[in-house]
Design a protein around this nucleic acid. Structure first.
Lengths: 161, 161
DNA sequence: CATTTATAATCAGTATACTGACTATCAGCA
DNA sequence: TGCTGATAGTCAGTATACTGATTATAAATG
C-alpha cells in the first residue's frame, strides 16, 4: 500500500483543508465574514452580472444543488439579488447589490494575502510550477466530477469536438 | 483581482472535488462502498491497531469532531470496533474487525487506480514533482488548520522546538 | 492532597458537496 | 401543433469539516 504522502488524493484533501483555514483567518482578520465558496460566487458575478444560477455554477465548478444554498446565504446577507429571468421562466438572474460590490472590493486584499500564505513554503519558481501542474492535472480530469468547469461558450465548443 | 486559475485555493478546491469523484467511481466499480475519509481511517488503523480516536485523527489530519462521525459509520458498517480503553477512561480504543481487514485489502487496488487517474494529465516526472511540491507546501502550513497532522511522537517533539 | 490545567470524546449548529428525485419550462422536431 | 428530450431550480437525505460548548477524566503543580 502506498504511503499517504504519495497519495495525491490525500494531499489534495489536506491542502484544501489548510487553504480554507487560511482563507477564513485572513478574511476574518480583515473584518469580513465570507467563506471561500461565497467569495468565488461574488467574484464570478462581478465579472458576469446577470447570469443565471446554472451559468454561475459552471463558471466556478459548483454543483447546481450546492449553488442554491450558497446563493440563499448571500442573498440573506444582502450581498446578492435573485431575480426572475425575463427570458426564461425556469431561471433566476443574479446581481450583486451595492453592498455586495463593496464587500467584494474590500475583501480582495485579504483573499490575495491568503493565497500567498498557502504557498509560503515554496520559492516563487516552485509556486509557479505548482500552479502550472495543478492546472494541467485538473484540465485532464475536469469532466470526471458532477460539477465540471464551464468557463465560457468558446471553451464549451472546444470540449465538444 | 487575480484570475481563478492563479488562485491556489481555488485550484485546491477543484482538484479535491474531482479527486473525490474519481475515488468514488473507482471504488464503486470495484464493488465497495467507502468514502476517501473512511478509507484513510481504515488504512491508518491497520498500521497502528489499538490507537484511540485522537491519535487516529492526528495521523490523518482530521478534526476530532469529524472523526466521531466517521467512526460511527465505520462501526455501523461492521468494519471497526470502538472499545473502552483500559488505560484511560476518557478514551476509546479502535480495532479493525475481520471484515474491516478484508474490505481494506480488497479495496486497495481501486484506491491505487484512483490515484493514477487523478494525475493522468501529467507525465511521470511532472507527477513526481507535483507530489513533492504538494508535500513541501503543506509542511510549511500544517499547523494553520484546526486538525494538524501529527504523524508520530518524534515529529511532535520536533515541532515543539 | 487539592487545585488547576489539559485532554478525550461528544453535541449542537453551520456550510460545503454530493446522489437521486421532482416540478416547471424550454427547445427541437415529426 | 403536439410530443419528446433537455434544462433550471429545488428538495430530501447523507457525509465531510468546522466553531464553540460541555462532560468526564487525567496530569501537573503547589
Amino acid at each position: 500500500m502506498r504511503d499517504n504522502n504519495e497519495m495525491p488524493g490525500h494531499l489534495a484533501r489536506r491542502f484544501q483543508q489548510i487553504a480554507v483555514a487560511i482563507f477564513h483567518a485572513e478574511v476574518e482578520e480583515a473584518g469580513y465574514d465570507l467563506t471561500p465558496v461565497q467569495y468565488a460566487a461574488l467574484a464570478a458575478l462581478e465579472h458576469n452580472p446577470g447570469i443565471d444560477q446554472a451559468t454561475l455554477a459552471g463558471q466556478i465548478a459548483y454543483d447546481r444543488t450546492t449553488i442554491t444554498g450558497v446563493i440563499d446565504r448571500l442573498v440573506q446577507k444582502g450581498l446578492m439579488l435573485r431575480l426572475a429571468s425575463p427570458r426564461d421562466r425556469r431561471a433566476n438572474v443574479l446581481e450583486l447589490t451595492d453592498e455586495g460590490h463593496r464587500v467584494l472590493q474590500g475583501v480582495v486584499p485579504a483573499v490575495e494575502a491568503a493565497q500567498d500564505v498557502m504557498l509560503r513554503g515554496l520559492t516563487p519558481e516552485e509556486a509557479a510550477e505548482f500552479l502550472r501542474l495543478f492546472r494541467k492535472a485538473i484540465s485532464a480530469v475536469n469532466d470526471l466530477s458532477r460539477a465540471p468547469l464551464r468557463s465560457s461558450p468558446a471553451a464549451a465548443d472546444a470540449k465538444s469536438e
